[in-house]
Amino acid sequence: MKDRLPGIVVKGMSSAGIFIMIFILYFLFREGIPVLKAVTLKDLFFGDLWYPAENPPVLGMFPLIVGTLAVTAASSLLALPFSLLIAVFVSEVAPRSVRELLKPVLELLGFFPSIVLGFIGMVVLAPWLQETFDMLSGLNLLNASVLLGVLTVPIVSSLAEEALSAVPGDLRDASYALGATRFETTRKVVVPSALPSILSASLLGVMRALGETMVVLMAAGGAAIIPLSIFDPVRPLTSTIAAEMGETPVGSPHYAALFFGGIVLLLMTLGINLLSAWIEKKGKLVQ
């Protein structure tokens, strides 16, 4: 009996994780669902005007959702192929000494504070874009996507590199012994073998970009419009919440709408996360 007590305590403490996750879902829904008293679900999702400070407030989240999707898609388009290239470099191409150096550096960059990148986007990249391309404002979709890319590349390439390195060396040997080049071996044997983990890593990168706040808050321009080009400013859900939560009365429709935006974000990231976990698990079962 005396020996079972610590086990029970450990188990009890670990259940905190479950409670936190349940509480997050519960509080988001509790605070967010009341927005439907002020606006219909259809208008909330597809209304294209976001004037939360008007009286009565106009709460159409369509531009915000499109903004989130646009910045996520643009940054993924830039970052994912680049990450795969970096992963191939570290795992297949780099000389050993370079690999030993680059691996910890990639991991370290995964901890790069996003506020710093947001700051760089605002005070360095934006003026530069503005001057070089003669834009109205350098704070736009392109700026935020590039910086989000810088944020996600280390995460995705680290995970993808681990997946590539985990492919057994004797498969590479077999391919080389048949007269394959390094590129052919990588493309036809190594990458396909690691594909589930690479996909799962890519999804985690997409998830990270989707949920990132400070970079888009500072560098994306913050206009609640539907972007028509990569030089247009956007206002994704995350930055809307961050920018407006401080200025809205607790319990108002605007307050509830911001929580509802949180629900949308959470469900999207949760979906991607679970899909990624499922692919990873599926890949392991096959091998």
């Binding site: 936190i20 706040t213 919440i241 911001l258 929580f259």
Partner: peptide, 20 residues
């Protein structure tokens, strides 16, 4: 739960902290 928590956007943690 732990896997899900790892993917929750940081601003959503902010909302959660605010309400709880």
């Amino acid at each position: 739960a732990i896997r899900s928590l790892a993917g929750v956007p940081s601003v959503v943690f902010g909302l959660f902290g605010l309400s709880l």
